[in-house]
Design a protein around this nucleic acid. Structure first.
Length: 349
DNA sequence: AAAACGTGGTA
DNA sequence: TTACCAAGTTT
């Protein structure tokens, strides 16, 4: 620019936006580039809700959850007024349950404020909103020229500038470089374009460079190392843990307990179990327990193999409460155990 | 600052 | 089956 050379960031952004105008993915929470140009704005509530759901979660998994949440709670005020258990139940199966707890805290804070803060800094102060989400909402809902850096953007930028430093060490440099691409005009479309490009063209394994609007500017492409970037530090092997789950039944009622707010599956309904450390533990009530099978499940940082014990009983429990449950309100691990025990034939009365 | 925190799809 | 990956945040 000042030196007369074309600004690489501005050129990249321009090419990217042209591509986005023709190739933007359609999503329930998104205002497409055409409507956007016509002056339509996305509802900040929709942007926030979708962004939180999309944290470490695929678009395919989020779609139906987003539709159910917005059908049931059309505004942040209605969500703020919802009961915790209802929101946790609606989130069940989506994972990372701290998001749902923070979602409610955030909705209540926003309702108390009378609306969403319109700046990145203001958004950053809210629970469950970190650097990525604050930038995304600021850019998409409020046209702030904030730089959005998610896994897609890290990959696109690492390749565009051929950054060979492995993640997470490269994070700061990638953020700095991503900022050189962020335009003052259409920052929200730019952010979504970067993510669409990363999700559909500049993919982790086999990038389709032939279709990429930025291929002529891409250093990694020129060096023939696009598919090798970004480099990542090797991950630790997951340990395997063993445990037991007790599924006690009284007709249509099952013995369940609400898990502590903090920690794994926090705040969710679950069946009583031991500590999943292989040591076993006392059953929640005295009964003639029958082994009905085994459930294997993998969490972020360990594999789990649970023995599922079941009993039909009227004995008083030492833990938990007998309740009518909806399998859909259970985290996936417990839903697997439920499916096993519930499908078990039992003596008719 | 490293570790905790879910799930389902894909190679 | 195993490992990686997906619009990260919190402690």
């Amino acid at each position: 620019m000042r030196d007369g050379k074309p600004d690489r960031g501005a050129l990249a952004s321009s090419l990217l936006l042209d591509w986005y105008d023709r190739n933007a993915r359609v999503m329930p929470w998104r205002i497409g580039p055409q409507d956007r140009a016509g002056g339509r704005r996305p509802d900040p509530y929709h942007v926030w809700l979708s962004e939180v759901m999309l944290q470490q979660t695929t678009v395919a998994a989020v779609r139906d959850y987003f539709r159910r949440f917005t059908a049931r709670w059309p505004t942040v005020q209605t969500l703020a007024a919802a009961e915790d258990e209802q929101v946790m139940a609606e989130w069940a199966g989506l994972g990372y349950y701290a998001r749902a707890r923070n979602l409610l805290k955030c909705a209540r804070a926003v309702a108390a404020l009378g609306g969403f803060p319109a700046t990145r800094d203001g958004l950053l102060a809210l629970p469950g909103i970190g650097p990525y989400t604050a930038s995304a909402i600021a850019a998409i809902a409020f046209d702030e020229a904030a730089t959005v850096v998610d896994g897609n953007v890290e990959r696109v930028v690492a390749r565009l500038f051929a950054i060979e430093t492995p993640l997470p060490r490269a994070k700061q440099e990638l953020t700095r470089l991503a900022a050189t691409l962020t335009p003052q005009e259409r920052p929200g479309d730019h952010a979504q374009a970067m993510m669409d490009l990363g999700a559909t063209i500049c993919t982790p394994r086999n990038p389709t460079c032939a279709l990429c609007p930025l291929s002529s500017l891409c250093d990694a492409r020129a060096a023939g190392i696009a598919a090798q970037l970004p480099r990542k530090a090797p991950k630790a092997k997951k340990p395997t843990r063993l445990g037991t789950l007790w599924l006690a039944r009284q007709g249509d009622l099952w013995l369940v307990e609400t898990r502590p707010e903090r920690g794994l599956l926090g705040g969710m309904i679950g069946f009583p179990g031991d500590d999943w450390d292989g040591a076993g533990g006392p059953a929640p009530l005295h009964a003639d327990w029958e082994t009905v099978g085994e459930v294997r499940h993998t969490f972020t940082h360990f594999h789990l193999i649970l023995t599922i014990l079941s009993a039909e009983t009227t004995a008083p429990p030492e833990r938990g409460t007998f309740s009518r449950i909806s399998p859909a309100a259970l985290p996936t691990l417990f839903r697997k155990a439920f499916d096993l025990a519930a499908s078990r034939p039992r003596p008719s009365t």
